[in-house]
C-alpha cells in the first residue's frame, strides 16, 4: 500500500502570476481520508498559502466542490482510496467559473442566477402568519422533494458545457430550483418564473447533455427539471394556439 500520494494542485495567485500553474504536494496516504483531508494536510503542514473553500465536511454545505482528475466532485465525499492506484491526483477549481485564487471560484454570477428565478413561495393571496401555515400533504411534498435537495455546490454548472460556451445561461441548479417551487402545491408563481426562464438564456439554452445529473451529489436530477420545464412551456404554447380563449 502506498505511503504517500501526490496531489497536483492548480495555483493562481493574481499578485504574482497571470494564469494558473500547477504545484505538487506529497501527502501521507490514509485510507480513511477524503480528498479534502489531504488538502487540509497541505494547508496545515506544507503550504499555508493554498486557498480553498470548505466547511461542513459532510456533504451538506456544498462549499468544497473542485475538479478532481477533470470531474467535478465534492472533495469531502470522495475517498483518497478511489485514486490511490491512478497516480497523482489533479485538483483544479470548478471549471467554467472565473478563478479568484487557487481553488476558489467566483460565485457571484451563480448567486445572481439563483435569485433571478424567484426561489421563494409566491402567493396571489398572501395570508397573515396568524392564520396558520399553508398546509401540504406528504404526497404533495413528494412531488417536488427531489428538486429541493440541492445544496448549491455548483458541480452541475461545472459539468455543463453550455455554461462554459454561454455564460449567460441560467444553468441547471437555478432552473431545478425554479421547478422545485413550481411543483410546490403552496406556490402560485409558476407564470412569473416562466416569464424569466422561457428565454434562450433560460431553459432553452439547455441542449440536454445530461452531465449535470451525472455529477449531482444529491441526486437532484437537474436535467429532468429542465426538460420538464420545456415540456410545460411547449404545452402552454400549444394550449395558447389551439385554445386561445380557454388556455388561461
Amino acid at each position: 500500500m502506498a505511503e504517500t500520494i501526490t496531489l497536483t494542485v492548480s495555483r493562481y495567485r493574481p499578485e504574482q502570476e497571470s494564469e494558473p500553474t500547477f504545484q505538487s504536494y506529497d501527502v501521507p496516504y490514509d485510507e480513511d481520508w477524503v480528498i479534502l483531508d489531504a488538502l487540509n494536510y497541505v494547508k496545515d503542514q506544507l503550504d499555508g498559502s493554498l486557498t480553498f473553500r470548505w466547511s461542513c465536511r459532510m456533504g451538506v454545505c456544498g462549499s468544497c466542490g473542485m475538479m478532481v482528475n477533470g470531474t467535478p466532485k465534492l472533495t469531502c465525499a470522495i475517498p483518497l482510496s478511489d485514486y490511490v492506484s491512478s497516480g497523482p491526483i489533479r485538483i483544479e477549481p470548478l471549471q467554467f467559473f472565473p478563478v479568484v485564487r487557487d481553488l476558489v471560484v467566483d460565485m457571484n454570477g451563480f448567486l445572481g442566477k439563483l435569485s433571478s428565478v424567484k426561489p421563494w413561495i409566491i402567493r396571489d393571496d398572501e395570508t397573515p402568519p396568524t392564520e396558520g401555515e399553508y398546509l401540504q400533504t406528504p404526497a404533495e411534498l413528494d412531488v417536488y422533494k427531489q428538486f429541493s435537495m440541492c445544496i448549491n455546490c455548483m458541480l452541475c454548472y461545472s459539468a455543463c458545457p453550455v455554461v462554459g460556451l454561454e455564460p449567460e445561461f441560467t444553468g441547471p441548479a437555478a432552473i431545478a430550483l425554479a421547478q422545485r417551487y413550481n411543483l410546490d402545491s403552496r406556490d402560485q408563481g409558476a407564470a412569473e418564473r416562466m416569464a424569466v426562464l422561457n428565454e434562450h438564456e433560460g431553459m432553452w439554452g439547455c441542449t440536454f447533455v445530461g452531465e449535470c445529473t451525472e455529477v449531482c451529489p444529491k441526486n437532484v436530477d437537474p436535467a429532468a427539471a429542465i426538460q420538464l420545464y420545456k415540456m410545460a412551456s411547449a404545452t402552454d404554447w400549444f394550449k395558447s394556439v389551439l385554445l386561445p380563449r380557454g388556455s388561461k
Partner: peptide, 19 residues
C-alpha cells in the same frame, strides 16, 4: 482580486466520453 477567466477549448467535446 483579478479574476482569471479560463478559455474554453474548441475541442471541449473530446474532453469526456459523455460530451
Amino acid at each position: 482580486p483579478e479574476l482569471y477567466h479560463r478559455p474554453m477549448s474548441f475541442w471541449w467535446w473530446l474532453q469526456k466520453r459523455a460530451y
